[in-house]
Simulated assay, not measured.
Amino acid sequence: MAKLTNRFWFQLHGWFSLPVWLIFCFVCLTGTVAVFSHELTWLTNPAARAGNPDNLPARPIPELVARVQQQFPTADISTVMVFEPYLVHVVAFTDHDKPYALAYINPYSGEIQQVNQGQTFIGFMRSLHGWLLFPWQNGYSVGYYLVSAMAIVMLGALITGLIVYKNFWRSFVRPQLRWRQGKKTLLTDLHRLAGVWSIWFLLLMSATGLWYLTQAVLWHADIDIEPHTPVVSAATLPNSADARRLDLAAALDIAQQRFPDFQPSYLLLPEHQRGMYTLMGGGDHIFYDRLAYTLSINPWTGEIASEKSPANMNTWQTIMHLADPLHYGTLAGLWTKTLWFIFGLLLTGMSITGFLLWHGRTQYAIRRSRHTTDLSEADYEAS
């Protein structure tokens, strides 16, 4: 009975991974690369680098927006994105000859270094890993479901693997890697060793992946995790044609006064007369993402119409803003990114070694079956 039980768990361990092996491996690999998407952008695109040889202080964001407006007088600026200090700020706008464009502006010199009207590397890698570039229709993407469902595969493979691999904790104190006992033995040792040392990482990726799957279901069901940005009430719009809206600098000052540790990262400007400033950013909480603070500010009165911060989030919102830093390893900058990258490579390697082991056993079983059949036929003919 024990042998049947062990065989059952072993087969289940294989079936948790093998039917979707190629997708699982691809998701692991793209996620590993996506961890360093910002650094790779800096490496591959000189126009995205925020060079500062003279050690100048960063210019105010409103001044950079004004630079773009001067360069493109007829442009309608909608969004400002702030990344790491070594990358440019990105100002998104539309113009009569540009349906959608991104101005890469150096935050120290104020120079517009590039106008990008295509896909960015950061956006491409996150889309490739997040939903395999499947289109979004009616608020959902089949690719997003497919990728996030890999969390079930990962968790199932982890649980069954620990059941199959008896006394797995010995790999922590006495790691074994037998180089000279054949390919199969080496692959088995590599697969087991990587799996045991990656238990924490597998649990973390499974938990965040299950959250992304839950989030997809909520989106598909039109259940809002965060409320939509409010609009200015028509009754409160100014009657005078001379009324002036607050500029971006004033809106940022209001946000800074409300949350002293507010660090802007994603700023949406009003799109119409009833539109509001929607300012998103991070703070001093390392476990929350860079969108944990959100303020909607009335551009006519300066009133904060709605706000969100780690102090007043509900449970769903808290999980939502904790998931990305834990999934991509942005908790402590380059150090945790490097750690996540290494274990991402291990996870990708585990999927490959697991497939090779399965392929080897399958080939052996086929050869054995053929050999048994040949012997049976020979015995029949002899009789």
Rank of each mutant, 00 (worst) to 15 (best):
L4G: 14
L4P: 00
W21L: 15
L22S: 08
F24A: 10
L29K: 05
L29E: 06
T32K: 05
V33E: 02
F36P: 08
S37V: 14
L40I: 12
N52I: 01
D54H: 04
P57M: 04
P57V: 07
P57N: 08
A58R: 14
E63R: 07
V65L: 12
V68D: 00
T79G: 00
Y86T: 08
L87K: 10
L87P: 02
A92W: 06
P99I: 09
Y104I: 12
Y108Q: 02
Q117T: 15
I122K: 05
F124E: 09
H129C: 10
W131I: 01
L132E: 01
F134T: 12
G143L: 07
M150F: 14
M150W: 11
A157P: 05
I159D: 07
L162Q: 01
V164F: 05
S171G: 05
V173G: 00
L186A: 10
D189R: 09
D189H: 06
R192C: 08
A194H: 00
G195F: 07
S198E: 12
F201W: 06
L202W: 11
L202V: 12
M205C: 03
S206Q: 07
A207R: 02
L210A: 11
L210E: 08
Y212N: 13
L213D: 11
L213N: 11
V217S: 07
D222T: 13
E226V: 15
H228W: 06
H228G: 15
V232D: 01
P238Y: 03
N239I: 09
R244F: 04
R245A: 13
D247L: 03
L248F: 13
A250D: 14
A250W: 05
A255F: 02
Q256H: 14
P260W: 12
P260K: 13
F262V: 09
P264R: 06
R274W: 00
G275L: 08
L279K: 08
L279T: 12
G281K: 09
G282N: 13
D284H: 06
D284V: 03
H285G: 08
Y288Q: 09
L291I: 11
T294M: 14
T294Y: 08
S296L: 04
N298I: 00
N298E: 03
G302L: 09
M313G: 01
N314L: 04
T315M: 10
T318H: 05
T318Q: 11
I319S: 09
I319D: 09
D324I: 06
D324L: 12
L331I: 15
G333D: 02
W335A: 15
T336W: 03
T336N: 02
L339Q: 06
G344Y: 00
L345E: 10
T348L: 14
G349W: 07
S351F: 03
G354E: 06
L357G: 06
W358P: 08
Q363I: 00
R367G: 03
R368K: 13
H371K: 14
T372E: 10
D374A: 13
S376L: 11
S383T: 13
